[in-house]
């Protein structure tokens, strides 16, 4: 993690009139990292993305991409970026292929072979010469990805990429983004409100609420911290009796018919042993892991759209 970040947001602020849409957001994205950008609707995810790709101006602060500021060296900065902002809107009256040719012409040195390669990569070979108006949403999404990666960007920015995709499509996209990040070192900056999806896809997530960055956390680190004491649930035949046996064993309680204690690994094993020795039938033991969703709601509260 000592590499120069591919994207750096420094105190990024956007005000429209008297409303502060984005308030001093700072974050770094490393090369090869899949970075999630989470937030409820209206929290400013899309605004931040629009500022990153130059569709909106910054009120103050700066965004650099590969060291180039989007404010002063936009062309250098943006030439490293591929993006889909919101829905992958394409020219419906053109074929998929013509759409790709269109965007290929706007970057230097994209060969015909590269276009074909990308078409194959997103699996659109059979339909690429059809008009886009005949495409399903999933196919448009693939075409959107295709136009974004044509010029082998170092940074891929995707705004709600799984919108409208079926489960297979989502999984495919996830695998593909992972592959891009691993094999080509492409950093992926992806916004979503689908928390479970982000959990599977991202290395790190930032949580945005009402324009403020309230947390950045590593997804991997979360899973590794398993040696700490956590809530452990025991599924037993007589919860009340079990609770009695564990008297003096610390804070045990019964939640939804499950015996719940706070324990680390060793204590969990010890508790299990005592229960079994006391003749209690133990059907199952599991940790009460907090999903990203729980964490997210915990951090953002049940706030209304600001």
């Amino acid at each position: 993690m000592s590499q120069a970040p591919i994207v750096r947001l420094q105190e990024v602020t956007k005000r429209i009139g008297s409303r502060t849409i984005i308030d001093r957001v700072s974050l770094d994205v490393q090369p090869g990292e899949v970075f999630g950008f989470l937030g409820p609707n209206g929290s400013g995810k899309t605004t931040t993305i629009r500022m990153m790709v130059g569709l909106m101006s910054l009120t103050s602060g700066d965004i650099t991409i590969a060291g180039h500021s989007v404010k002063t060296a936009f062309r250098q900065a943006i030439s490293r970026v591929g993006a889909i902002v919101e829905n992958p809107e394409m020219y419906k009256f053109l074929t998929g292929y013509q759409n790709l040719v269109h965007f290929a012409r706007m970057n230097p040195a994209i060969t015909k072979a590269r276009i074909d390669e990308v078409v194959e990569l997103v699996g659109l070979q059979k339909r690429i010469h059809d008009k886009v108006k005949k495409y399903s949403l999933g196919m448009r999404q693939r075409l959107g990805v295709a136009q974004a990666i044509l010029h082998r960007p170092s940074l891929l920015v995707l705004d709600e990429p799984t919108n409208g995709l079926d489960p297979a499509g989502i999984r495919e996209l996830r695998d593909y983004l992972r592959l891009l990040a691993r094999e080509e070192g492409t950093a992926v900056f992806v916004s979503s409100h689908l928390l479970s999806e982000m959990e599977l896809m991202c290395d790190r997530v930032a949580i945005l609420q009402q324009g403020k960055l309230i947390d950045i956390r590593s997804i991997g680190a979360q899973a590794e911290s398993s040696s700490a004491a956590e809530e452990v649930l025991f599924e037993v035949d007589q919860p009340d009796a079990a609770l009695g046996i564990l008297e003096g064993q610390g804070a045990g309680r019964i939640v939804d018919g499950l015996l719940t204690i706070t324990a680390d690994r060793d204590l969990t094993a010890a508790v299990n042993r005592r229960l079994v020795e006391a003749g209690i039938r133990v059907y199952g033991i599991r940790k009460k892991t907090k999903s990203l969703e729980d964490q997210f709601l915990e951090v953002t509260g049940s706030d209304t759209i600001g």
Binding site: V53, G54, L55, F74, R75, Q76, I78, S79, V81, A83, I84, V85, E86, N87, E89, M90, Y91, K92, F103, M106, N107, P108, Q147
Partner: peptide
């Protein structure tokens, strides 16, 4: 209207 402006303006062109 088509929304394609977003794809058009994020290219290395002023």
């Amino acid at each position: 209207t088509w929304g394609t402006i977003k794809l058009l303006l994020i290219r290395p062109w002023s």
